[in-house]
């Protein structure tokens, strides 16, 4: 199992648009990806409602985990996504 820790860069937190972009990217990996806080139950990263219900806010640290072939590369790309201010990138 691969694991990464990343700080949410989106100025409005991981809500509607940033959450949608993240979930889409997680779905595209084709892997079982989970997202959560340290010491709490993780949620399915391919579920928009799960990710939004997590309520990760700007500046919070989250842990991503994935299993299977290419898990490391997949997590790297998701970490890169969460490190950007997705809400500032309009369009």
């Amino acid at each position: 199992m691969s694991q990464r820790t990343v700080t949410i860069a989106s100025s409005v937190g991981l809500h509607a648009r940033p959450a949608a972009l993240f979930v889409e990217a997680a779905q595209e990996t084709g892997l079982d990806v989970e997202i959560g806080r340290a010491g709490e139950d993780a949620v399915d990263a391919t579920s928009i409602l799960g990710v939004m219900a997590l309520g990760a806010k700007h500046g919070e640290e989250v842990i991503l985990t994935a299993e299977g072939d290419g898990a490391d590369a997949a997590l790297e790309s998701l970490v890169a996504l969460l490190s950007r201010d997705l809400d500032a990138e309009e369009g």
Partner: peptide
């Protein structure tokens, strides 16, 4: 362009496994 992301996110909710 303004409405697209809102509708897209709403469509994702409709497809959500959890729901």
């Amino acid at each position: 362009e303004h409405a697209k992301p809102i509708l897209k996110a709403t469509a994702m909710i409709a497809r959500d496994k959890g729901l």
